[in-house]
Computed example of a mutant assay.
Amino acid sequence: MSNATHASAPLSDVTVWYLEQTSPADLSPAAAPEGPVTVVRSGTPLPEFSRFLYTAVGGDVRWTDRLGLTYAQWQEILERPGGETWVAYENGTPAGFIELDAQEDGAVEIAYFGLIPAFRGRRIGGHLLSYGVARAWDLAERHPGRKPTERVWVHTCSDDGPHAMDNYLRRGFRLFDTRIEREPEAANPGPWPGAHA
């Protein structure tokens, strides 16, 4: 979801939904997709790769909040304590990612989640979300000294893909808040200039 502001851009209403799980038992995993799909943790903090995933997945759904970040700012995000990025691959090609952000109160936020458009509609998203949520619940096992996860939460909005909310609900998330926010109308940037022209 975009948090960018543009003084001269017209504003539009965006509905933001906040969802959560409060127990590992809440997770209702999706069936694994057919074909050679694997999910691997991106263990080396690499801004180039992270920015590629962010633009390739979010370009057509108006993810713009990180586009202006410097290399150092990307690096800082990737090196934050308890942060993890898990990437789905099909036949060795990145298909999408889920980024987890561990917080001090025992909560883990799904900061970003989605698929590159060419891989949507093939049951990879439900599988990746299931896998990522399970990793959110056992995140403390990979980060000694971190408080065990007590809550996994995410927000999605009316600018996101048409199946996003349904995927979260099917995986066992429950709605806990809804807000209407005014955001600037912006063209879909795509993964590179002119991609959606």
Score class of each variant (00 low, 15 high):
P29V: 05
P24N: 15
R135K: 15
A72T: 14
P24D: 14
E79I: 03
G35P: 07
V61Q: 07
S130H: 08
T64L: 03
A134E: 13
W137Y: 08
L46H: 07
D166Q: 15
A72C: 12
F52R: 00
D101F: 12
E79G: 10
S130M: 03
D26P: 11
W63D: 07
I116F: 01
H127P: 01
R123D: 10
A186S: 08
T55I: 00
E109F: 10
R120Q: 13
L46A: 13
R142S: 10
G96E: 07
G161Y: 15
E109I: 08
F97P: 04
Y112P: 00
W86D: 03
P47V: 04
E99G: 12
A118I: 00
A7M: 06
P36C: 04
P36T: 03
Y89M: 02
A31H: 11
E181H: 09
V16R: 11
T5H: 11
E104T: 09
A30I: 08
P117Y: 01
A111G: 09
V40P: 02
R151S: 03
T70S: 15
G96M: 04
V108D: 05
L115S: 01
D65A: 14
W74L: 06
T44S: 12
G35V: 04
D101V: 08
T38W: 02
I180H: 13
G190R: 10
E99M: 05
V57L: 02
R142C: 05
T5M: 11
P33L: 14
A136L: 02
L139Q: 06
T149F: 02
V61M: 08
Y89I: 03
S28G: 06
V40I: 14
G132A: 08
E20I: 02
R66Q: 03
P117Q: 04
E104N: 10
G132P: 04
P148A: 11
I110M: 14
P33I: 13
R182Y: 09
A25T: 09
D160I: 00
I124C: 05
P24R: 08
I110C: 13
R179I: 07
E84C: 07
V61T: 14
G172D: 05
T44G: 06
P148W: 02
T85W: 00
L129I: 01
S28C: 06
I77E: 07
A107K: 11
R179S: 15
T93C: 02
C157F: 01
Y71N: 10
T70A: 13
S8E: 15
P148S: 11
L11T: 07
S50W: 01
R122T: 04
D101H: 05
G35Q: 10
D60M: 02
P191A: 05
F119D: 08
Q73P: 05
L169N: 12
S28I: 13
S8L: 12
L115W: 00
T70M: 10
G58V: 05
W137M: 05
Y89D: 10
D60P: 03
Y54L: 01
L27T: 06
T55H: 00
E150C: 05
R122L: 09
A25Q: 11
W192P: 04
N91P: 06
A88P: 07
R146Y: 04
F173C: 15
R41H: 00
